[in-house]
Design a protein around this nucleic acid. Structure first.
Lengths: 237, 237
DNA sequence: GTGCAAATTATTGTATACAATTTAGCATCG
DNA sequence: CGATGCTAAATTGTATACAATAATTTGCAC
């Protein structure tokens, strides 16, 4: 059909189906803490909010449930995931398990350009740390996760990258729930240390720093059981 | 209240929602090679096959796409995943990356009862290896995967367990596509060696054996490009 | 006969309608 | 006054109908 060579420069595969857009929007809202854990996500409400039918809303919620960000209960509805302390520990155990290996793969393939991109991300992260306010803190959490995601991307393994996306998103949820200090997501200097180790091709040091970094984040959590979920003060929309 | 199991030919009476049952059925069919990679899974056909509407069929296919067993292409349809050689390598790279860590966690928690269960599974696996025929070979592949899944289950980390389920399923697809000898899925003795190492609490040895085992499986693959069916898809990309 | 192009067909994308299940409120009874 | 059973509202589960998009076929011109 399109025998013209002008077409392939515009691979608009980002024309994703509606459900995927809604899924991304809700995921961002969850990760950025605009949606509190435990919030009920009624299909009708979601659909109405995005001006689509329940069909798409349902598909989006279903997708999010596969990522562990939403828990759907049969005949009961969908809720923003409310990870238990045990679940939180497992999420970070998973990260300790996979991130050193991912970092090792990344270190073996990283290019100078990618190192510069990492530095750039770090700079952005630092800038956000300087600012104050809710939105800055949210962006800070996001930037902190993006560092790990970029490392996963550099590793070149799409499967691990996807898995890390899930882990980082769920980590944000955990941090939102159990994080104590606003510094919980930072580890800013630790990110920098890891980059430095990468620049020096010191893979073992980088992996050690990564492990320490993850442990540091987890140590800043208060993983006591919270049983009284406060009513939806989350509806401050 | 659930004594209504008299629907003819429709055992759709379990706790799971219909879409989940269909998803499981198709997944089993894929993993057991009853559905060849690249097979088109039309929503109407799937729905008709299970006597449900397209809605449920679509949900099941969507779910399988999140597991990487089915690839749905916008406005084109769903197909049994046809992993490329590169994808296959990434799958096994991921397994090499995570399985030692999972095994380590499992070794630290394993109980005598669980060790016996592993031995039992091994026995079953060996019995299937002795038999001949397609169905035996299929069951053998499945049993081989079940060993790894049981280890993941023993590790106690639900997230890693879920991830391993995905990796094992996709591995079966890869083996079905690129496996050369019927021994590709075996590694039967290697499973036994790993169990022995576990019994002796020799974690490092067990991890080493696991790495070797995975490498062995991968080495038995013939990861050359196959463009046999790729009429449409060859032109697409 | 070959190549392009428009119409046709088939399949997916989305919305709406109906059924089943759960939750809540209320009335009744102990 | 409290507990219990029933009715009603709301929400999810599923099916069907319609719209949009891609594949196929057919027809026409060269």
């Amino acid at each position: 059909m399109n025998s013209s060579a002008d077409e392939f420069l515009t691979p608009i595969d980002s024309a994703e189906t509606g459900a995927q857009q809604i899924r991304d929007a809700i995921r961002d809202a969850i990760v950025e803490r605009r949606l509190a854990p435990g919030t009920k996500l009624s299909e009708s409400d979601v659909g109405g909010l995005f001006n689509v039918s329940r069909t798409l809303a349902r598909a989006a919620l279903q997708a999010l449930s596969y990522e562990g960000l939403v828990s759907v209960e049969k005949n009961r509805g969908a809720f923003v995931a409310y990870p238990s302390p045990e679940e939180a520990r497992q999420i970070f155990a998973a990260r300790r398990l996979v991130e050193p290996g991912i970092l090792k793969s990344a270190a073996e393939r990283i290019t100078p350009v990618q190192l510069r991109q990492l530095r750039h991300l770090l700079l952005e992260e630092g800038r956000l740390m300087g600012e104050r306010g809710q939105s800055a803190r949210r962006a800070e959490i996001k930037a902190s996760g993006d560092f790990h995601l970029m490392v996963a991307g550099i590793s070149g393994n799409l499967i691990m990258q996807r898995f890390m996306e899930e882990l980082v998103a769920r980590s944000s949820l955990v941090i939102a729930l159990y994080g104590q200090s606003s510094a919980s997501s930072c580890g800013h200097s630790e990110h920098g240390d890891i980059i430095t180790a990468l620049e020096q091709k010191d893979i073992d040091a980088a992996c050690g720093l990564m492990l320490h970094h993850i442990a540091h984040i987890e140590a800043d959590l208060d993983l006591r059981e919270r049983k009284s979920f406060g009513l939806k003060e989350a509806f401050e929309r």
